[in-house]
Structure formats: structure tokens, C-alpha cells
Design a protein around this nucleic acid. Structure first.
Lengths: 120, 120
DNA sequence: CCGTATCCACTGGGATACTG
DNA sequence: CAGTATCCCAGTGGATACGG
């Protein structure tokens, strides 16, 4: 374990990753693709209420980051398939750690919130 | 491994946690407090450029979630000390997983971005 | 089918000044 | 010292309509 980078530096790339993980749609895309490639509409329908613009933004950014690949089949009608890259798939693990933590502590958090609000 | 909750539900509490972890200031507060309690100004100075309003918002929310405690000593001048709760401290682990992942993959991501931008 | 093009509304960070 | 009170502003998500 070296110097641990510096998450306090706004320009630290680690910060960018944190933002990605915290991004609602990015996480949902990763989870959606973990069981196999999907098309745009399939992602859209699976994720739920998401504007196409926003989904496209998310997918483009993830593609740029190397988390997913985007394959276009110039058929009619067109077909576009999104697939997790190995790096993208490796995100499932950290995400699981977070969700596990969340599920474990949600009751305590809910309770803490209730207690806090009680004093208001 | 049970039903895994449902991160796709916007009302799922897990989503809230994800947002917290993705929150820039929340993460920095946790990391700042990991070596011991700090006062408001100490946090402020350690974190860097953060508006007092924003820091207060963050701290209040974390207190409400049960991640930190806020102790006020009615002295003159006043003294307020923030401390990680056990639950707050338990966040360090998941955060480390993320930052480790980030540090590991940052080079690949940077490279992917460069390659992507190359085609523009 | 897979997006792009617009437009809107609003959240929420940031800077600054001020108070108990 | 530890915030609160304002004001500002940009970015971003969302809805809708349309194009290749």
C-alpha cells in the first residue's frame, strides 16, 4: 500500500471514479450488463424511467472510460449492442461491497434518521 | 446472498447510500475523521476549498444518518467536535475498496479515454 | 431501432457577508 | 469559532419531438 493517492486533490483521477460509482445510471448499467450484452432499448426498459439523452450520455462516458464496448450493426432496423469490458465487469465487485454495506446498515441508518428527526 | 434488494428501485434505500458514497464531501469527511475527531475549522481546512454552507449540509446529513456525532461545548469561543461513529468508521472499508479499484485502473481508464478521443 | 436536438426547471455548489 | 443568511450561477436531469 503506497501513498494512497490523494482523494483530496480535486484533480485526482480517483475522484472521477468515485463520481462514476456514485452515479445512479452508471451503476445500473453495470448491473444490467452483468448477465450479458444488451441493446439500447433493452437497457432503457430494464433500467426504468430514464431519458434517452441521459442514457446515451451515460453509455458514451462509460465507453470512453473503457467500461463498456459499443457495437453497431448497420442493419435495418439498426442494432446496437453494449457489452461490459473486463474492466467494466471488475466494477461489479466494488459495487457489491457497497451494496452489501448498504443492505447491512440500512436498518441502522433508518433508525438513526428517525431518532434525529424526533428531536425536531 | 439473498435477494440483493433492488437498486433499480429509485426508492430503495440502497440508492441513497450509493449517493452518499458518491458524494465528494461525504467521502472526504470520512477520510478526514478516520484518524480521530476534528473540529469544524479543522475539517474545513483539511478538506480544502469548501463553502461553509456546503460543509455544514454534509455534516448535518451525516449526523442524521448516524455516521458521525456532533458534540458542542458551549465555551467561548464555542467548540464543536465531529467524530466518526462505529458505523461511519465501517465506511472506510468500502471506500478503500473503491479507491483501490480506482488506483488500479486509472492508468487503463486514462489510456482508454485517450484512445477514444483520438478518434475525434 | 437508436439515438440527436431542444428546451425547461431545478437542484445544489460556491462565494461572500454577517451573527451568537 | 462555528456556523447561518443570501444570492448567484452553471450544470444536469428530464420530457418531448424529430431524424438517419
Amino acid at each position: 500500500m503506497v501513498t494512497k493517492g490523494n482523494a483530496f486533490d480535486p484533480n485526482c483521477p480517483t475522484r472521477t471514479i468515485l463520481d462514476r460509482i456514485g452515479d445512479k445510471w452508471t451503476v445500473l448499467v453495470v448491473l444490467s450488463l452483468r448477465s450479458g450484452p444488451l441493446r439500447f432499448t433493452e437497457l432503457r426498459d430494464g433500467i426504468g424511467r430514464v431519458a434517452p439523452k441521459v442514457l446515451t450520455q451515460t453509455l458514451r462516458r462509460m465507453e470512453r472510460d473503457g467500461l463498456i464496448t459499443r457495437e453497431v450493426y448497420p442493419e435495418i432496423p439498426p442494432r446496437v449492442v453494449y457489452t461490459l469490458t473486463p474492466m467494466g465487469a471488475s466494477l461489479i465487485e466494488p459495487i457489491s461491497v457497497i451494496t452489501d454495506w448498504a443492505e447491512t446498515h440500512v436498518p441502522a441508518i433508518t433508525k438513526a434518521q428517525a431518532a434525529y428527526d424526533e428531536l425536531a
